[in-house]
Simulated assay, not measured.
Amino acid sequence: MAIQVSTEILEGSVLALLTREDYYGYAITREVQKVFPISESTMYPILRRLKKEGWLSTYDEAYEGRNRRYYKITRLGEEQLEQIKKNWQELKSATDKILEGNNE
């Protein structure tokens, strides 16, 4: 994919994943990498920012003698996801008009 993925799209992707189930950080990265060519180092700042905004909460669970930090979407995160989806549809519609020559 030659077009750079915006931070808001990555944030929306994470929030959308977390509506299905809770994930730990590395698993989130792997799921997003199935769709977008991102590095592991890209995801952790996004997760920290989403948590700081109150859109995610975290909890730890033991796994093979270590703790895994799991991320869970909050009610505020669900509201933000709906806003991101709305913004995406508006951008997609505007872009399609221009790219398809229907910008009248």
Results as ranks from 00 to 15, higher is better:
residue 1 M to I: 10
residue 2 A to N: 15
residue 3 I to W: 08
residue 3 I to Y: 13
residue 5 V to D: 07
residue 6 S to Y: 07
residue 7 T to L: 15
residue 7 T to R: 15
residue 7 T to K: 15
residue 9 I to T: 10
residue 9 I to Y: 08
residue 9 I to D: 12
residue 9 I to P: 07
residue 10 L to F: 00
residue 10 L to I: 01
residue 10 L to H: 02
residue 12 G to L: 03
residue 13 S to L: 10
residue 13 S to G: 08
residue 13 S to N: 05
residue 13 S to Y: 04
residue 13 S to E: 06
residue 14 V to G: 00
residue 14 V to C: 03
residue 15 L to T: 05
residue 16 A to C: 07
residue 20 R to P: 02
residue 22 D to R: 00
residue 22 D to G: 00
residue 24 Y to W: 05
residue 25 G to F: 01
residue 26 Y to F: 12
residue 27 A to P: 06
residue 28 I to N: 01
residue 32 V to H: 09
residue 32 V to Y: 05
residue 32 V to F: 07
residue 33 Q to Y: 06
residue 33 Q to S: 07
residue 33 Q to M: 11
residue 35 V to W: 13
residue 36 F to T: 03
residue 36 F to A: 05
residue 37 P to D: 13
residue 37 P to I: 10
residue 39 S to F: 12
residue 40 E to N: 14
residue 41 S to E: 14
residue 43 M to I: 12
residue 43 M to S: 14
residue 44 Y to F: 13
residue 44 Y to A: 11
residue 45 P to V: 03
residue 46 I to Q: 03
residue 46 I to K: 03
residue 46 I to Y: 00
residue 47 L to R: 01
residue 49 R to L: 04
residue 50 L to T: 03
residue 50 L to A: 02
residue 51 K to V: 00
residue 51 K to R: 10
residue 52 K to Y: 08
residue 53 E to V: 09
residue 53 E to P: 02
residue 54 G to I: 06
residue 55 W to P: 03
residue 55 W to I: 13
residue 56 L to C: 01
residue 56 L to D: 01
residue 59 Y to Q: 00
residue 60 D to R: 14
residue 61 E to P: 00
residue 61 E to N: 02
residue 61 E to Y: 02
residue 62 A to R: 12
residue 62 A to W: 15
residue 62 A to S: 11
residue 65 G to A: 06
residue 68 R to N: 12
residue 68 R to P: 06
residue 72 K to C: 04
residue 74 T to E: 04
residue 77 G to P: 02
residue 80 Q to V: 07
residue 81 L to M: 06
residue 81 L to N: 02
residue 83 Q to F: 15
residue 83 Q to C: 07
residue 83 Q to V: 12
residue 86 K to S: 06
residue 88 W to F: 13
residue 90 E to V: 15
residue 91 L to N: 07
residue 91 L to D: 15
residue 92 K to N: 12
residue 92 K to C: 11
residue 94 A to S: 15
residue 94 A to C: 08
residue 95 T to H: 07
residue 96 D to S: 12
residue 96 D to F: 08
residue 97 K to D: 14
residue 97 K to R: 14
residue 98 I to H: 06
residue 99 L to F: 05
residue 99 L to C: 03
residue 103 N to R: 11
residue 103 N to K: 10
residue 104 E to R: 13
